[in-house]
């Protein structure tokens, strides 16, 4: 049996189903266009599709927020108090998915992570991630100096000097983090262009792999920033 799949950019890969109420064709929409009934979540639908967006990384925050509020209002369980239990459950399911989708897509980094996971590039514990040796050396040394500062502080060392070193370290890590985020944003724009102009698969694959590398580097730096912040805050 072949499944008809939509060719539309927004709903690509989502199976075409029929409305549970009136049997009209639906492709991932929240409501049936014919009878207006709320629809079950289709298998394999992404958070992007949930908002009717293409799988691109530039998202206008204001329009996403607007969509979120509009959909929250439309899907709100309060609208279904007199509906059947089946429809009440659908509205709950969709409302909860809406919150997850919004929380993920509104954060630029979470958005990239999500795209890579959705496309099967990044999956914790299953794909082995490689880190370049220079990065490991650098991260190890930074962690060690952070450790030294922590120990010296616990032993009652020169707190003022330590504070200064910590603040300098924090600034360095923060700059690294900003650089990484800028790099990620640049790759995101390249990805969007590839999607818009029908870039070939190998270009897209290479972009996804590079985004994955940058995210890995970011994980290290983010841990370092968090480590320093903890020291400075404590």
């Amino acid at each position: 049996m072949s499944v008809i799949r939509s060719q539309d950019a927004q709903t690509e890969g989502i199976p075409v189903t029929s409305c549970w109420n009136c049997r009209a064709a639906v492709t991932g929409a929240h409501f049936c266009a014919a009878c207006g009934k709320v629809q079950p979540l289709p298998a394999g639908a992404s958070y992007f599709a949930f908002f009717g967006l293409p799988q691109k990384l530039t998202i206008e925050p204001a329009s996403l927020e607007g969509q979120f509020h509009m959909l929250s209002w439309k899907l709100h369980p309060d609208n279904f108090v007199r509906a059947s239990e089946f429809e009440r459950n659908l509205s709950l399911e969709r409302s909860s998915q809406l919150n997850d989708a919004y929380r993920t897509l509104r954060e630029p980094v979470a958005r990239v992570e999500y795209l890579l996971e959705h496309l099967g590039v990044r999956k914790e514990g299953t794909t082995k991630q490689q880190a370049p040796p220079e990065l490991l050396e650098e991260v190890f040394e930074l962690n060690e100096s952070l450790d030294e500062l922590r120990e010296a502080r616990a032993a009652g060392g020169d707190v003022a000097a330590l504070q200064g070193r910590l603040e300098a370290a924090q600034q360095n890590f923060q700059e690294d983090l900003d650089d990484v985020d800028a790099e990620l944003a640049g790759l995101g724009r390249e990805w969007d262009a590839a999607v818009d102009f029908g870039g070939d698969e190998s270009t897209k694959k290479a972009l996804l792999a590079r985004m994955n590398e940058v995210l890995n580097r970011r994980a290290y730096i983010r841990n370092l920033v968090a480590g320093v912040q903890k020291e400075l805050g404590g």
Partner: peptide
Amino acid sequence: LVGAPECG
């Protein structure tokens, strides 16, 4: 010296 970049 090895690393697991997913978790840092």
